[in-house]
């Protein structure tokens, strides 16, 4: 229970706001959303995207190295399974495990694709706050409203659970597995009760501000459109090679 959740999401949010953005606004979101399918499709695009987006992400924030740690474990395990599973001509073998020419090829392909897509994706999450994302993809109607309202709810509830967690930890609530499970259940029920309180407060707060079904949102301006077009055409060129 060393790292707290609130810290994690809050620091990511502060990273999103403070990161250096060569591109900004809706154009950045669309650049990544258009690049991702291109990256999945072609080998050359993957190489180009990996270099470009890693550079952009590292430039954006050092937090990049922290973010990619989480998916690494998953990719590592997945690649390991692929390496020992796929059949073909045998290259190396230990006891019952064998690596084949095909499995090496597939594993390398999957690894390059994952890292490449991951670099593009992490550029998006390093530089884009959730409301900016929602405004860029132009969601309308109740889905957009629900998302913005729940985004607010998440921040309130994270704060809530963090204070609950600290007080539980101060009372040695996470000492040993059995007690941790019990504490976690109690925390989640308290959170459930508090969420219900919040619903009432939300309603009152909305009514007090004459809420009429449109959640106010900041307008985001695009920056670096030329740069985005260059990046995208570089990647498109990759797929034509």
């Amino acid at each position: 229970m060393a790292t707290s959740l609130e810290e994690m999401s809050e620091s990511l949010e502060s990273v999103q706001v403070n990161s250096k953005k060569l591109l900004d606004g809706p154009i950045k979101v669309w650049l990544v959303l258009l690049s991702l399918p291109l990256i999945l499709l072609d080998f050359h695009t993957q190489l180009i995207a990996l270099i470009l987006f890693s550079a952009l992400s590292i430039h954006a924030s050092k937090y990049f190295f922290k973010i990619i740690k989480i998916p690494f474990g998953f990719i590592f395990l997945g690649i390991l399974v692929i390496l020992f599973t796929i059949d073909g001509k045998e290259v190396v073998s230990f006891y019952f495990l064998k690596i084949t020419d095909k499995s090496v090829e597939t594993a390398l392909n999957a690894m390059l694709r994952s890292f490449s897509a991951l670099s593009a994706f992490s550029y998006l999450i390093l530089t884009t706050t959730l409301p900016e994302f929602i405004s860029a993809i132009r969601l309308k109607g109740f889905v957009r409203e629900l998302m913005l309202l729940s985004y607010r709810a998440i921040q309130v509830l994270l704060e809530e659970i963090e204070s609950l967690r600290i007080s539980a930890e101060a009372r040695l609530g996470f000492f040993g597995i059995r007690r941790s499970i019990k504490t976690t259940s109690m925390l989640s029920y308290m959170l459930f009760l508090r969420s219900f309180e919040k619903v009432e407060k939300f309603e009152r707060a909305k009514e007090a501000r004459c809420y009429a079904g449109v959640f106010p949102m900041q307008k985001f301006k695009s920056k670096g459109s030329v740069f985005a077009v260059i990046l995208l055409s570089l990647m498109a060129m990759g797929s034509l090679i």
Binding site: S150, A153, S195, V199, F202
Partner: peptide
Amino acid sequence: KSLLAVSLGF
């Protein structure tokens, strides 16, 4: 709406 939003948050 508020109920669903908070449930989603939960």
